[in-house]
Simulated scan of single mutants.
Amino acid sequence: MNDLIISGLNLNIAWKSKSENFNQIEQAFKKISADLFILPEMFSTGFYMKPEEIADRNEETLEWMKRFAKEKNTAVCGSASVCENEQYVNRFYFVEPSGKYSFYDKRHLFSYSGEDEKYSAGKEKVIVNYKGWRILLQVCYDLRFPVFARNNDDYDAILYVANWPKSRIDAWQTLLKARAIENQAYVFGLNRIGIDGNHLEYPESSYCYFADGEEISTTNNNIVSALFEAEKLEKFRTKFPFLSDRDEFVLKQQVLINI
């Protein structure tokens, strides 16, 4: 593995306006270089529970991500509302500069908001291999379910993209740190900012934690950056081989994909 420079955008998502959000992102990253850009959950529309109005039917968000990744020569990831086979999914895309892409459909749907009534849950735990790093993709509410994100010594980092509101922000920060410590992995949690169309407030609250729980991210002009250091992680895991003492669990309806 080589070290990875990661940059996420604290995006004030324009409600239900894909073109406006695409333009915001392009302008924000115009002078930024990184190995990977991260965007929030449903970054092209906002977390909207009427998917029939906003869901991609012709891969609009994916096609924009492909163009953006190619132009910047950088991988980009984030989730979008997608209609597939007459069902809606909250799909986390990971797109490489070559146009190759992977995706994870959100497993744990936020029933409190009615997401489970509008969207279909994913069944696969997805780990992407990018530049030698094994990266687990997760979306927002997944953060509350540690068994699904459990490290079976098969990943090095977790990416969480979210629309996690101010009223529960302490849980967001606490659980991100916990996932890093218990899984001995880098954890980057990217949240949106601003006020959405439901009048929910989202404070600046994106963080990256090292495997020991240390916050390593810095923020400048809404760009949250962190460095994933391969040697540092390997040395830490070698010195503290906690993963080897883990219990064994088998999850039902789980397929692990290594791409």
Rank of each mutant, 00 (worst) to 15 (best):
L4D: 01
L9A: 01
K16G: 09
K18G: 08
E20Y: 14
N21L: 03
I25W: 01
Q27C: 13
A28Y: 06
K30L: 14
S33E: 15
D35M: 07
I38Q: 03
I38N: 00
I38K: 01
L39G: 01
S44F: 06
M49I: 10
K50Q: 13
I54L: 04
A55G: 02
R57D: 12
T61W: 04
L62R: 04
L62I: 03
L62Y: 05
W64Y: 14
A69C: 07
K72V: 02
V76G: 01
S79F: 01
E84Q: 15
E84F: 14
N85P: 06
E86V: 11
Q87F: 09
R91I: 01
R91K: 11
F94T: 00
E96A: 07
E96W: 12
P97I: 10
P97H: 11
Y101A: 10
Y101M: 09
D105Q: 07
R107G: 01
Y112C: 04
K118Y: 11
K118G: 11
Y119G: 00
A121Y: 03
K125H: 01
I127K: 06
N129P: 06
K131M: 12
R134T: 05
L137Y: 05
Q138D: 11
D142T: 00
R144E: 02
R144V: 00
R144N: 07
P146Q: 11
V147M: 12
F148Y: 14
D153Q: 15
A157D: 02
I158W: 02
V161A: 08
V161K: 06
N163R: 07
W164N: 00
S167K: 13
S167C: 15
S167E: 14
R168A: 10
W172P: 00
Q173P: 07
Q173R: 12
T174Q: 10
A178M: 13
E182V: 05
Q184V: 09
A185D: 03
L190W: 02
G194L: 02
G194K: 06
D196E: 08
D196W: 03
N198Q: 15
H199D: 15
L200V: 12
E201L: 14
Y202G: 01
E204I: 15
S206Q: 03
Y207M: 10
C208E: 01
C208V: 06
C208S: 04
D212P: 05
D212G: 05
D212I: 05
E214L: 12
E214M: 11
S217N: 09
T218A: 13
T218N: 11
T219D: 14
T219C: 15
S225C: 12
L227D: 09
L227I: 08
F228N: 02
E231R: 13
K232Q: 10
E234H: 13
R237E: 11
T238K: 15
T238C: 13
K239H: 13
F242T: 14
D247Y: 13
F249I: 13
L251I: 09
K252D: 14
Q253K: 15
V255W: 05
N258V: 12
N258Y: 15
N258I: 11
